[in-house]
């Protein structure tokens, strides 16, 4: 399966010091009320993508995340289970996964298909597969967004992500505008449903003359694959990215187009 990339927007928390809420208000003149940090991160990434490409009103939106909006879960747990208070309507609505994708659609002006989806492993690759399957039938274009917010305390998010205590969890928001056609594309991404063993993977990697990056395990967010794809596209470097879960591996191939 192959999708062409028309534009990207990329952010990794430890590389840029940005007050995202302030950016949304001052640079993009957005009303940030009744939204939380997870949504702000998602919206900021989407607006940065919109600056770099044309978004059609019927573009299909796919939003994925490692754990979703955990901050709102913590907040609501505090209300209901600790303070024994009642849930506030907007907090309840913000707990639903597709609330974030609704705000994204409103922000970038789409009215078509809009899916919030999660895979326990290989989130980015599975969302690419999902988008590919859909637009190969609908013949539309897709916007894929990966949103991960590093919440406090880190011990909680590490527990949910299954990470060691030494790992630093980062925030990240990375988007691609995807198409089935090469027109105006800056890169392509190849992927499939196949999962490889380590030995099979070694055979692929050893026979490749393209740069290979394995999913890092120190500074981490769940959808890092999306970030590394974008970084390779920005640097105009071809890439094989190896994602892993338990003892299974999947690969993505990024090809740069002139």
């Amino acid at each position: 399966m192959k999708l062409y990339v028309k534009a990207i927007s990329s952010y990794q928390g430890n590389l840029e010091d940005v007050d995202i809420k302030k950016e949304l208000k001052q640079t993009y003149k957005r009303d940030t009320r009744r939204q939380d940090k997870f949504m702000h991160l998602a919206l900021w990434g989407a607006l940065r993508l919109k600056e770099r490409c044309e978004i059609n009103s019927d573009d299909e939106i796919y939003i994925t995340s490692g754990v979703g909006n955990m901050e709102i879960m913590q907040k609501c747990n505090e209300y209901v289970n600790v303070q024994k208070d009642i849930l506030r309507p907007f907090d309840f609505i913000n707990m639903l996964g597709n609330t974030t994708s609704y705000h994204i659609a409103k922000t970038i002006g789409t009215k078509g298909k809009n899916i919030f989806e999660v895979s326990n492993s290989f989130s980015f690759i599975n969302s690419l597969i999902s988008a590919y399957a859909s637009i190969s039938i609908s013949k539309k274009e897709a916007v894929l967004g990966c949103v991960d917010l590093a919440t406090q305390p880190q011990s909680l998010i590490k527990r949910v992500l299954g990470l060691d205590k030494e790992v630093t969890v980062l925030s990240g928001v990375n988007y691609q505008k995807l198409s089935l056609t090469m027109d105006e594309a800056i890169a392509s991404i190849e992927f499939d449903t196949k999962t490889y063993t380590f030995d099979e993977l070694q055979g692929i990697v050893e026979n490749s003359n393209v740069k290979v990056i394995y999913a890092p395990k120190d500074n981490y967010f769940e959808t890092m694959a999306s970030y590394y794809v974008n970084r390779a596209i920005e640097a105009k470097e071809e890439l094989i990215y190896v994602d892993s879960f338990e003892d299974n591996y999947k690969i993505l191939r990024v090809e740069i187009l002139d």
């Binding site: 490692g66 754990v67 979703g68 639903l96 996964g97 597709n98 994708s101 809009n114 899916i115 919030f116 989806e117 999660v118 895979s119 326990n120 492993s121 599975n126 597969i129 999902s130 949910v160 992500l161 299954g162 449903t193 999962t195 879960f245 299974n248």
Partner: peptide
């Protein structure tokens, strides 16, 4: 590692299905 999709992943693994799983939350 756990997520909303853990239920689907655990089920697929036990039933011998394709490892691709996805949970839609709309």
């Amino acid at each position: 590692k756990t997520s909303l999709d853990s239920y689907a992943q655990d089920t697929a693994k036990e039933l011998g299905l394709n490892p691709f799983t996805m949970t839609i939350a709309t």
